[in-house]
């Protein structure tokens, strides 16, 4: 091994170690510092269990909605270009550029009982702000472009020739969509889904504002962890962090597989 290579390796290992591995290891260590039985009872903390359950419920609604929206918008932008769709193509990135705290404030202004949409919903007897629905809204908002940013470039690269060929072979639009279009973008969409999943599970700022952060009611796992640290219950916080970290590792693994498959598909592309 050349000397420059050794130096480069050492720098990278130190850098990643100091930023990632050591802090992660610290969380691990802190979560088990009181032994297995304490860890076990901490896992059954009612506020945290409720937070995990709420996070799961948000994921179950927000992720599929985002996939539907992401795939639909991608098809619209690529296949039916118009001034409106081109404008959307730009606007859709806003959630990536905006700080989540601003997203939260925007949603609160719009959906609070006295807000613009909120007053209409209130008239209908529906409460959005500081409920499950507000958390779902915020989660969708912050992860809006994550699916379409994966699907749009692939759709552009694919073109329409496969679909048009299928049409000349007698296939109806629905069949073409399911057997050609969807099959072609499946791995890009899957990659977008895992990114969305990670974002929805990990979102803090926007959810903090719109949920009201009420323990046992509107607290997601990230909010629960934050609340535990704020109230000097840091051991419970570390256990929550460990759980969240494990979920992230799992999601990362899925992302890795999806991206690998996607890149192989891209590599396989021709002409």
């Amino acid at each position: 091994m050349r000397r420059s290579s050794v130096v480069l390796r050492s720098v990278v290992i130190l850098y990643v170690g100091a930023l990632l591995a050591l802090p992660l290891g610290f969380i691990f260590q802190q979560a088990f510092v009181k032994g297995w039985s304490q860890f076990w009872s901490a896992l059954r903390d009612p506020a945290m269990d409720q937070a995990i359950w709420l996070t799961a419920k948000v994921v179950v609604l927000a992720v599929p909605l985002n996939v539907l929206f992401g795939v639909g918008v991608s098809l619209w932008i690529v296949r039916h270009p118009s001034k409106l769709s081109r404008a959307l193509d730009v606007v859709i990135d806003v959630p990536l550029a905006l700080s989540p705290i601003i997203v939260g404030l925007m949603l609160e202004l719009a959906y609070a009982q006295t807000g613009w949409f909120g007053s209409t919903f209130a008239y209908l007897g529906l409460k959005i702000m500081f409920t499950y629905w507000a958390i779902v809204l915020a989660s969708i908002f912050v992860s809006l472009p994550l699916v379409s940013r994966q699907v749009i470039p692939l759709l552009r690269e694919l073109g329409e020739h496969q679909e048009q060929t299928a049409a000349t072979l007698g296939a109806k639009p629905g069949r073409i969509f399911f057997t050609i279009t969807l099959r072609s973008i499946a791995w890009a969409a899957a990659y977008g889904v895992t990114l969305t999943l990670a974002r929805v599970i990990g979102e803090y700022g926007a959810v903090l504002i719109v949920s009201g952060n009420i323990a046992l009611l509107t607290q997601t796992l990230t909010l629960n962890i934050g609340a535990n640290f704020d109230s000097f219950n840091s051991y419970q916080g570390f256990v929550g962090s460990l759980l969240l970290g494990l979920i992230s590792v799992l999601v990362l693994g899925v992302i890795g597989i999806a991206r690998h498959r996607l890149e192989r598909k891209r590599y396989d592309s021709f002409v």
Binding site: H161, I180, S184, D268, V271
Partner: peptide, 8 residues
Amino acid sequence: FQDYAPFR
């Protein structure tokens, strides 16, 4: 098509 448009 010119690019043969195979179903990949």
